[in-house]
Computed example of a mutant assay.
Amino acid sequence: MMTAASENRLAFTATVVALTAEATELETRVIELRQALAELDERIRAVSNALRQAARSAGPWNVGQLL
């Protein structure tokens, strides 16, 4: 027969284990999201650079056609 104190300890331990697992999952998700943001930032920079180069190549008389 379990005492109330033993049951409370088990419940507490189970809660700690569950929260630790959830925290680990959240940390993993944060890392994935940071990587995705870094990749998106790289793509944005590449597009921005390509647009700048295209604008320079077109010259001032054709820049309006690029937009």
Rank of each mutant, 00 (worst) to 15 (best):
I44H: 06
V16F: 04
A58I: 04
L37H: 05
G59C: 01
T3G: 07
V17M: 06
A21G: 02
E27W: 05
L66V: 01
L51K: 14
N49G: 02
T3V: 02
A50L: 12
F12S: 15
W61E: 15
W61P: 00
Q35P: 04
A4Y: 14
N8M: 13
A55P: 03
R9A: 15
D41L: 01
S48V: 05
S48I: 03
A54C: 10
A5C: 01
A50D: 13
A23R: 13
A4W: 13
A14G: 03
N49V: 08
I31W: 04
Q35R: 15
D41M: 00
R43P: 01
T24S: 15
L67A: 10
T13K: 11
A18M: 10
A54W: 00
I44M: 09
L51M: 13
R52G: 07
R34P: 00
E27C: 08
A21Q: 13
A58N: 04
G59F: 00
Q35C: 11
D41H: 03
M1R: 07
A55D: 11
T24M: 09
N49E: 14
A14I: 01
E22K: 14
R34F: 01
T28Q: 13
R56K: 11
A55Y: 03
V30N: 04
S6P: 02
A38H: 07
N62H: 03
D41R: 07
A36N: 09
F12L: 14
T3A: 03
S57I: 06
L26Q: 14
N62G: 00
A18S: 10
E32I: 07
E42S: 08
E27I: 05
A54L: 13
L33S: 02
R34E: 13
E42Y: 02
A58P: 00
M2T: 09
E25R: 15
E32G: 05
L37R: 08
T28E: 10
V30F: 06
V16D: 08
R34Q: 10
A4T: 13
L40V: 06
S6R: 12
L37D: 08
R52L: 13
R56F: 03
W61Y: 10
V17N: 05
R43L: 04
A50H: 05
G59Q: 01
S6D: 15
I44F: 02
L51V: 12
A38C: 07
Q53W: 03
R34L: 07
L19T: 09
T28K: 13
E42T: 09
T15Y: 01
E25A: 15
N49R: 10
A46D: 10
R56T: 05
L66F: 02
M2G: 04
E42M: 08
A55R: 13
A4E: 15
T3N: 05
L10C: 04
A38I: 11
S48L: 08
E39G: 05
D41F: 00
